[in-house]
Design a protein around this nucleic acid. Structure first.
Length: 599
DNA sequence: TTCCGTTGCGCG
DNA sequence: AAAGCGCGCAACGGAA
């Protein structure tokens, strides 16, 4: 059953039951307490022929409010996310061809719906008071909610039609489902938070940088290195944070460098280099994940990053604030399970080349990808050299071919012609300005108008011609990589969503066995959530998702079940994407107390 | 003062 | 012959 939902004044909302084709078969009903109404539907769902799929405008605004009220939902259809997937295919903008007779253009409905769906009931979380009324929309009246609901229902039905009309409706429908479920998983992970020991992090920083300095000051270790660097430049004052000053200082000493990248500096003979390399590494840690980061992002033993589903064109997630997807390896020491709990860290091994093998249907390649170590299996084609096999593969997928790689590429081309042809075709499509798609049908962006202008007249001699060639090649590399990276993202998303479902089943069935558990570090009492404990987030839960890696936080006793669930979800992902294929998608799992011990 | 492009580096 | 893909964030330094 599908139920469209739009928030009204206070905790009220309008709900409308929909048929599977998206058409409304009952009048909207007004509920006084949306979280309670949703919770009731979720409880009643299974006995009434399957759980509800909530149809709403934007999970990232609607769902956190439900989670805060302790309500988890199983399934949804996120109209904003799905509209983005549909529009990316390059169809005419919604409204041009598919405008619904009496309604506003669908694009407008989608644009307005999140505003209303955000809900306006009292928000106990800390925030800027008054901001909502100053800059945000006024609380929606029930009439406005009714209008938005109408638009939402039409938009949703239209999206179902457009999905069904896709070249591969089953795959694209799966993409729509997992994209929406990804939105749910992202909101849950943000709310649940990643276990984070501020004391461990602080000790780690102090060990590397010295005691915490006053605001705006360099930590002792960095200050010392800065002094040594200036001394190495003959006593000139040089700010090591300034590439411009460094370039000048090197030039004055007769050692011109093209840039101050650490890779460049490593090949330079100058007394300042060793200090500089160490300074850069530590300064980076201090600036990106130092004490200021700790103050801002870690509360009550949890790091609460905000994930942006669909934030990357390839379908990977992005993050907003806290650099959640760039946590340096050293800092992972601070990610520690609660007492009695553990972390299950799972990583898809060599995901992208395996995805390529399955995509291309290259038997020889797929056979190699049917083993545990893909690169080792391919090494035979490269004189037994695993490293060479890896370089060749990465070059094929990224479009690189510097130095030795070109010869390795030639070997790859000869031995695995279909895999080579697959990425070459994608590159050609890109150079011709076409759009390519992932396995499940996510489309890459079309070339910009500037790109079309620049590449329109190819054989004009001169500087423009050079630029045109470069742009052409760059887009070829982009689309070449897109088909692999985006299909790998498809796979990872299917894994994530399948795992989320299995973890919920585990929590549901394990309550009496004591495997569910409630994470409540240091007796925090859920104070971050400013209210009652959030039952929706009890039990084994996803706490991290980074492209091809997931982390589950669970009671120790539940770890074996979680490991099994991950394996099942990975197998299911391979099957859903590629059907019968010899390619395996192995996942390495580590059950550890600390994230840093996972690799 | 604020804004923004560049540089550099963390992650996959 | 040479070129590799995708992000977020912080600091700098010149422009506005």
């Amino acid at each position: 059953m599908r139920v469209a939902v739009v928030a009204g004044p206070g905790r009220t909302a309008l709900l409308q039951e929909l048929a599977e084709d998206g058409s409304a078969y009952a009048a909207p009903t007004l509920v006084n307490d949306l979280p309670a109404a949703v919770a009731e539907h979720e409880r009643a769902g299974p006995e009434h022929g399957g759980s509800v799929r909530w149809v709403w405008a934007d999970t990232s605004t609607a769902y956190p409010l439900l989670l805060r009220a302790g309500v988890r939902v199983d399934r949804c259809h996120d109209v904003a996310l799905i509209e983005a997937l549909l529009l990316a295919r390059g169809e005419a903008p919604a409204g041009a061809g598919s405008m619904v007779a009496q309604g506003a253009p669908l694009a407008q409905a989608v644009a307005v719906a999140p505003r209303a769906a955000a809900g306006r009931w009292p928000d106990p979380a800390p925030g800027a008071p008054g901001q909502a009324t100053l800059f945000g929309p006024a609380e929606p009246g029930i009439d406005e909610a009714r209008d938005v609901l109408g638009a939402l229902v039409l938009a949703h039905a239209d999206q179902l039609r457009r999905i069904a009309a896709d070249t591969h409706p089953a795959r694209f429908g799966l993409l729509a489902a997992v994209e929406s479920a990804g939105g749910l998983a992202a909101a849950e992970m943000s709310a649940r938070g990643m276990p984070w020991r501020a004391d461990v992090h602080d000790a780690l920083l102090a060990g590397l940088l010295g005691p915490r300095p006053g605001p705006g000051l360099r930590p002792p270790r960095l200050a010392g290195l800065a002094t040594q660097i200036s001394a190495a430049f003959g006593g000139r004052a040089v700010n090591p944070d300034s590439p411009a000053q460094l370039l000048k200082a090197f030039a004055i000493d007769g050692v011109p460098v093209p840039s101050t990248r650490s890779g460049v500096l490593r090949g330079i003979d100058h007394p300042a280099v060793p200090f500089l390399l160490e300074y850069k590494e530590l300064a980076r840690l201090h600036a990106a994940h130092g004490w200021a980061w700790l103050d801002e992002w870690v509360r009550d033993g949890r790091f609460h990053p905000e994930y942006v589903v669909g934030g990357v064109v390839s379908g990977r997630w992005a993050s907003r604030g806290g650099g959640a997807l760039q946590i340096p390896r050293v800092v992972r020491r601070a990610v520690v399970a609660d007492p009695g709990w553990t972390l299950v860290v799972a990583d898809a091994a060599q995901l992208e080349p395996r995805v390529l093998a399955a995509l291309a249907g290259d038997d020889a390649f797929a056979e190699a990808a049917g083993t545990g170590d893909l690169y080792q299996a391919l090494a035979g084609a490269f004189g037994g050299d695993r490293a060479k096999a890896k370089v060749a593969l990465l070059s094929a997928m990224y479009g690189g071919a510097g130095g030795e790689a070109s010869q390795l590429l030639a070997v790859l081309r000869r031995r695995f012609p279909l895999a080579d042809a697959y990425v070459e075709a994608a590159a050609r499509a890109g150079e011709e300005g076409r759009v390519v798609r992932s396995r499940l049908g996510r489309s890459c962006p079309p070339p910009s108008a500037e790109w079309r202008d620049l590449t329109a007249s190819p054989d004009e001699p001169g500087a423009d011609d050079q630029r045109a060639r470069r742009s052409l090649r760059a887009r070829g590399r982009f689309t070449r990589n897109f088909v692999v990276q985006a299909s790998a993202a498809d796979w990872a998303l299917v894994l994530l969503v399948g795992l989320r479902r299995r973890l919920a089943d585990l929590a549901g069935s394990a309550g009496s066995a004591g495997l569910a558990g409630t994470a409540d570090p240091a007796g925090a009492g859920g104070s971050f959530r400013s209210g009652a404990p959030v039952r929706a987030l009890d039990g084994p839960g996803l706490v991290f998702f980074q492209h091809d890696e997931v982390i589950v936080h669970c009671l120790r006793a539940a770890a074996p079940d979680v490991v099994a669930a991950i394996g099942d979800a990975a197998q299911e992902a391979g099957r859903l994407l590629f059907g019968a294929t010899p390619v395996r998608f192995p996942v390495t799992t580590a059950v550890v107390d600390c994230y840093a011990d996972a690799k």
